[in-house]
């Protein structure tokens, strides 16, 4: 029984974006694990603990050298193995189709795959589906609840859709689940876990071995733009009635809340 969890690193959420001659950089080079992926790691570990005690949990990432840190965290939390798909440095980022294919190829036989619902860097919201397709697996994204039926090789999954709608699915295994926030509380890795994880061997694979050159697509923006600098607070003037009207207008027309 094999469980996999796909993770990636993203820039620190507090880091500011700087444009230097059209090249994008960050004020803070520290990277973090994609926040949704932490919930995915926890979900994978709980799947093993609660439903599939004989399973082996593999954390897999596709990224530059620094991505091993994310794998170490996953190992420290309790994953059994780790796979790092490396590639040569390249401007831009890999298309999700390529990422999904690579991961699909690297995971030879797998029963359950957990992913974060999207990476907060590019919000592609696509990789889980590509992995599922590669192995003819079920796929549900934005998962809020999971109930396992190991004997029947089925899952009952609740996903979130627009307007707070909840959709209930019965889903056969093998399956890919895209995990959303709030599914669980990711455990804090123990120090012995962290120390052991440092010494664990990480399997290294090369992107070029998994995806043919013709299928390997890099997305390279022709330009980047920064958003308008955050304007100072717009003070709404007038008497109460005028303020209320203006605020109502802002909510309806500018912010599209109503």
């Amino acid at each position: 029984m094999n469980i996999a969890v796909c993770i990636k690193q993203v820039p620190n959420t507090e880091a500011q974006v700087i444009l230097n001659d059209g090249i994008l950089a960050f004020s803070d080079p520290k990277k973090i694990i994609n926040p949704y992926d932490e919930f995915a790691i926890e979900a994978a570990l709980r799947a093993k603990e609660q439903a599939f005690p004989d399973a082996s949990v593999t954390a897999i990432t596709l990224g530059p050298e620094s991505a091993t840190e994310a794998l170490r965290t996953a190992l420290a939390m309790g994953c059994d193995q780790a796979i790092h798909i490396t590639h040569e440095p390249h401007p831009g980022w890999l298309a999700p189709l390529t990422v999904g294919q690579a991961i699909g190829a690297a995971l030879r036989q797998v029963d359950l795959v957990f992913c974060g619902r999207q990476g907060i860097d590019h919000d592609d919201f696509t990789v889980p589906y590509v992995i599922a397709n590669a192995h003819q697996m079920s796929c549900i994204n934005v998962v809020k609840e999971i109930t396992y039926k190991p004997e029947e090789k089925k899952l009952w999954v609740v996903r979130e859709s627009d307007g707070g709608q909840k959709e209930y699915f019965e889903c056969p295994m093998p399956a890919v689940l895209g995990i959303s926030i709030g599914l669980n509380k990711p455990r804090y890795p123990s120090l012995p876990g962290i120390m052991k994880a440092k010494k664990k061997a990480i399997e290294s694979l090369n992107l070029t071995d998994l995806v043919s050159d013709s299928n390997c697509t890099w997305i390279q923006p022709s330009t980047y733009e920064l958003p308008k600098a955050k304007e100072a607070c717009k003070m709404i003037k007038g008497d109460i009635a005028e303020q209320a009207s203006e605020l109502a207008r802002i909510l309806k027309e500018d912010l599209h809340i109503v």
Binding site: Q165, E167, F169
Partner: peptide, 22 residues
């Protein structure tokens, strides 16, 4: 593969604080 068994509309209860749009 994925069989939809039920749909619950979201508007009935008030949204959860951490998930609310407003």
């Amino acid at each position: 593969r994925e069989v939809l068994t039920k749909v619950e509309q979201g508007q009935s209860e008030r949204p959860d604080l951490t998930e609310s749009r407003v």
